[in-house]
Amino acid sequence: MFRLDGKTALVTGASGGIGAAIARTLHGQGATVVLSGTRQAVLDSVAARIAPDGARVHVCPADLSDPAAADALVAAAEAAAGAPLDILVNNAGLTRDGLAIRMKDEDWNRVIEVDLAAPFRLCRAALKGMLRRRSGRIVSIASIVGVTGNAGQANYSAAKAGMIGMSKSLAQEAGSRGVTVNVVAPGFIQTAMTDVLGEAQREKLLAGIPLGRMGQPDDIAAAVTYLVSGEAGWITGTTLNVNGGMAMP
């Protein structure tokens, strides 16, 4: 089950904890993976860990805050892999947290640009080929805060909620061609981003998670693998909440 042999996948934000786990897992299922991100050296080392011999792994750096770079990434990934894109995983994202009354336009705009507009541009580019080929899988990594909101993250939660709405629309547009568009909304995942939390904060967080632990990047990778697999061919427009039970929308 869930094999991806012969499939080509683009994973954005592959230099981060969750993105690297997604890329590794898809590769493990047989897919050719194209890793994107802004940091070439980190991407290279992630690629080397995924496949020391370089088999079925490619690196395609791109700065998604640049609209032209986002527009060009799908074609670049297909050129690197030498095959059309079957799977797009929109994982790249950033945060610029702050309470709304002090949030600068610049922080709002940057998060909307990178976390919502860039995924849209990638979907648009990927869908053209997928619709024509009558197959394809798009999974975007949103966040629990896109569903529940979170103080200090008006920009980030707006972008992630936007991603969910966008995916539902794209699912309806692409459904007649067998292309599915879904979302995975992670809860608190143990990564560099959450390692900075203090002990007290961590305790409080865990108390709100029925499954009693922080999530691991592999928990997200498994959900993505399922949604991009052939077996998930009748699931589209959905948001899979992977959060240890922290929120059950």
């Binding site: 053209k128 619709l131 024509r132 547009e173 007649s176 061609r177």
Partner: peptide
Amino acid sequence: ADSLDTVELVM
């Protein structure tokens, strides 16, 4: 053709 086909044709 369906509506998506017509958009694809135009493109």
